[in-house]
Design a binder for these strands. Structure first.
Lengths: 240, 240
DNA sequence: CGGCAAACGTAACCAAGGTTAATGTCATGA
DNA sequence: TCATGACATTAACCTTGGTTACGTTTGCCG
């Protein structure tokens, strides 16, 4: 039985067979949840650490005026939040975007792993650093790219991440985003996202339809986005 | 001799005297560098981990078109980047904003600390999580706040962080930012930052002058910003 | 003291993207 | 079958913030 989470971590550190067995053992508690299910709500006490095994989710924050900003998309293998029970309360929400399978590692288990297994700790750490790189890339996009570049960049990121976990073909992959969700991720309005997608479609660069992304001209797409996948670091090594 | 870095970590985990001694010992190698000095350049091999002891710095990324996006401001006690030699190459730049004192912990030293001292590891981890919370808050600002709110929010963040390390008085603190730097942090143009600062000044909310921030009406400032300092988490506990 | 560079301050004009609102499409379920 | 609701699409109009250009202030150094 393959486990997306363990596979991801293997890409980050040379886990021994014992490490792998231990990790698999640790995420034995699996729940299946429907789309739109909240895994974490702002203010929750942070107890178990959730890990995506199947499906997509996203983290977001609400603003007083009702605005929503999406902070990250989570796909199979991703930690929802590696807080290790360190913070008093969650400062954002996490909700599933599709039906999903979620493992929960209780706090004690996480601590035991970190205490006993330096290689696992290292893999966790690396995973954190990669996530942080993704956050930084989002900041760059929001701050300095215009709408078309922004959307293109996010599509590149998500496509490459999907490819890295073996869930993308040469030119397309599942991408279960509505234009509303996309808008809340890139900091635009749904109306403008629609305009941008139309433009990209007419320019024969890419199409986003019925929950799947179709890349027509990868070179042009990457060029519009100014995409440099380096920040996704180690994820790449899992492909080979 | 007090050490801003050790003080920060103490706020994050119950370090023993031995831990503290070890940490102080570890950052014995201190350099003084002038303003505008690059500590890290994109592409550098990530060897020693740098820690701010005095002064300010910031991390940034350049875009092909010459645009610059600032990713974080670093003040005394902050890690420049806790990569622990995990990534192949740095994916962003770090440069000092003022004269600064910087400690460098060689890779081996970091690894030794993490391997031998679970409490120190925990403090490092917590520190990472807080930094990640700051990144998330920036994303929210860039995505969903308009110029005035954005600038106000950043001022709140920086003021509170300065206060948390004892470097702010009731209504003001050092804030060595030019309008150009500020613009590259909040994703606006210098011209527009100037307009926003003027507006905040005329509204008797705050003033930013000659490298220092003067908060005239803290309540109004926080309100404009929609500021909720929770995401700065544990830093608060050092104040008491 | 004079000259230079960096940063600040402002104004006129412009464009990217937001707002509002109407309409279309499609799947679901009574 | 028809009603419903979520999402996509489009158009007309407006606001925020970008662009360009220039003058002022300040600090530094010969």
């Amino acid at each position: 039985m393959s486990n997306a989470f363990v596979e991801r971590l293997r890409g980050y550190a040379p886990l021994s067979d014992a490490d792998v067995a231990l990790l698999k053992e640790s995420c034995r508690t699996v729940r299946e949840v429907p789309a739109g299910h909240h895994l974490i709500r702002e203010g929750d006490p942070p107890d178990p650490v959730f890990v995506m095994l199947e499906g997509w989710a996203f983290g977001y924050k609400m603003l007083p005026d009702g605005g929503r900003q999406i902070l990250a998309f989570l796909m199979p293998g991703d930690f929802c939040d590696v807080h290790i029970a360190v913070l008093k309360a969650m400062d954002h929400n996490v909700v599933t975007l599709t039906n999903a399978k979620i493992a929960s590692l209780p706090r004690a288990q996480m601590e035991a792993l970190v205490e006993a297994r330096p290689t696992i700790t290292q893999a966790f750490w690396w995973s954190q650093l990669v996530d942080q790189g993704v956050l930084r890339a989002w900041i760059v996009s929001m701050g300095r790219r215009k709408s078309e570049e922004r959307v293109a960049h996010l599509m590149c990121e998500l496509y490459i991440r999907m490819r890295n976990i073996g869930l993308a073909s040469d030119d397309q992959c599942e991408m279960p985003l509505t234009q509303i969700v996309l808008a809340d991720a890139v900091g635009l309005t749904p109306v403008h996202v629609n305009r941008v997608l139309k433009k990209l479609r007419l320019a024969k660069v890419m199409e986003l339809n019925a929950g799947s992304l179709n890349i027509i001209d990868p070179v042009k797409l990457a060029q519009i986005a100014g995409f440099d996948g380096n920040y996704l670091h180690g994820r790449l090594q899992k492909v080979g």
